[in-house]
């Protein structure tokens, strides 16, 4: 699979010395083809991308700068007044205690859950890649299976498994002498959600890392094996550094996902009162928009969240990229 990238890379390095040749070839290619064709090809995507990606972002920013006030009883055509408030909505969100407790909650969640899930995914991928492991196909399929269950359905399914009276897990733990464990308590519910996410996405992340492992040429560790290096040593010293970029990719996707946390807590609200309407920033945005009818503040929350996600995932990517390169140079 690494070969996929080779032609392009070869072209890049060639352009250093034989750049003129490549350029003249490209110029010929362009004059041979139509000049309008690429733009026509890009048109459908760019139009839809502009309407459904760029426009909503712009509109959210625009909305977040205004505030609609209801005067009197809120009846009649002139009862609402929309006025420009600048960064007023942002300051009201940033001074809102519930926004920060929700944000703190997803950050805590991310710090604990993402490393656990990725460590698990990495270990499973390495074990599946190890020569001495048997029943590989069965394991790979069963680890990947939960990803085929949509998030909402996974959350409903686990909510049943957390519910005392319905859950065989609760009753088994009780008869094993652990007492009645409350998976939906005020402190435990966050970790019950973490379990749902781990269940859903470990296999998916494992597959990304596993695909990275499969791309490593066998010859690289055959030599080490002949030299008598143990399977564990091969995994840690050779494989792990080589799949670093795959792990980074899974980390970025996991960070984005964590900050967006919504469906699982929203579903669990059906079985517990310990999830408030501002449990995560996204839940807060939803509540502001559809329960409190305040789209302006909701837009401000969405903007802060999108910006934060973008900065965090981009920053993380840059941070580890630098480290990855220094490792490659070693």
């Amino acid at each position: 699979m690494t070969t996929i990238d080779l032609p392009e890379r070869a072209g890049e390095s060639a352009s250093a010395d034989g750049g003129a040749l490549a350029k003249s070839k490209r110029a010929r290619k362009l004059s041979g083809g139509s000049r309008v064709a690429p733009f026509l090809f890009l048109l459908p995507f760019m139009v839809l991308f502009a309407i459904f990606f760029l426009l909503p972002i712009a509109y959210a920013i625009y909305q977040s700068l205004f505030h609609t006030e209801v005067s009197g009883l809120g009846l009649g055509p002139n009862s609402t007044v929309t006025k420009f408030v600048g960064l007023g909505n942002f300051s009201s969100v940033l001074s809102d205690h519930s926004f920060f407790s929700g944000l703190g909650r997803v950050i805590l969640f991310g710090i604990v859950q993402v490393p656990i899930m990725l460590a698990l995914a990495t270990v499973l991928a390495l074990l599946l890649d190890s020569a001495s492991t048997r029943f590989k196909r069965f394991f790979r399929l069963s680890f990947f299976l939960p990803y085929g269950v949509p998030g909402v359905i996974a959350a409903i399914l686990w909510s049943f498994l957390y519910l005392p009276g319905l859950s065989p897990i609760v009753s088994i733990l009780r008869s094993a002498g652990f007492g009645t464990i409350n998976f939906l308590g005020i402190h435990s519910v966050l970790w019950s959600i973490a379990n749902i996410i781990t269940w859903e996405y470990t296999g998916y992340n494992m597959l990304i890392i596993y695909a990275g492992l499969q791309a490593i040429p066998q010859s690289l560790f055959e030599a080490a094996r002949i030299d008598g290096a143990s399977e564990i040593k091969v995994a840690l010293k050779i494989k792990l550094p080589l799949i670093f970029s795959s792990i980074v990719l899974t980390a970025v996707f996991s960070i984005i996902g964590t900050l967006q946390l919504f469906s699982e807590p929203q579903v669990l609200r059906a079985v517990t009162t310990n999830i408030s309407s501002s449990f995560t920033p996204n839940l807060l945005a939803y509540t502001k928009a559809f329960v409190e009818n305040d789209p302006n503040v909701a837009a401000a929350v969405a903007v802060i969240l999108a910006l934060g996600t973008f900065i965090l995932s981009f920053g993380f990517l840059k941070l580890v990229q630098r480290r990855a390169f220094s490792e490659v140079e070693l």
Binding site: P56, Y59, Q260, L305, A306
Partner: peptide, 16 residues
């Protein structure tokens, strides 16, 4: 666009 969270778009999309 790959890095923009989908749920951040849903709300302004609804308003639009």
């Amino acid at each position: 666009g790959v890095l923009v969270p989908g749920t951040a778009l849903a709300l302004p999309l609804y308003l639009l």
